[in-house]
């Protein structure tokens, strides 16, 4: 499953890094604490969070995450969007909250 394949179910709007929409998804991780993500997220996961500042992209890049999903319609900061484009890691917004977004992602991953 690729990032573009979850757009509809999670009601996502790509905001930046669209050149990475064909990244493969291995799973998901939900957290707003950066060192929690640094310590526990795995390569290829979709990171669901409310944090929209540039440090999110530093972590997404270092951990080689598949995408960042910003919940409740958060928009990436300008420098976050620029970093997402540089790294080809998509940042997408959803009107859903973290519970609903992660539930839907888990359903999709289970179905395969």
């Amino acid at each position: 499953m690729q990032v573009k394949d979850i757009i509809q179910a999670l009601q996502l709007t790509p905001r930046a890094g669209a050149n990475g929409l064909d990244r493969e998804i291995s799973g998901g991780y939900v957290s707003d604490l950066l060192s929690d993500v640094m310590g526990h997220a795995r390569e290829g996961q979709v990171w669901i969070t409310i944090q929209a500042h540039k440090n999110v992209m530093a972590i997404a890049s270092l951990k080689e995450l598949a995408a960042v999903v910003l919940v409740r319609d958060r928009l990436p900061d300008e420098d976050t969007a620029a970093a997402a484009n540089d790294e080809s890691i998509p940042v997408l917004s959803t009107p859903l909250d973290a519970f609903e977004a992660s539930g839907r992602l888990r359903d999709l991953l289970r179905e395969g």
Binding site: L33, L34, S35, G39, H53, N55
Partner: peptide, 16 residues
């Protein structure tokens, strides 16, 4: 507020 300050950085270093 930025999501730092969980007190997990040094434990992460230790583990890694």
């Amino acid at each position: 507020e930025m999501g730092f300050g969980a007190g997990m950085g040094l434990p992460n270093i230790k583990k890694n």
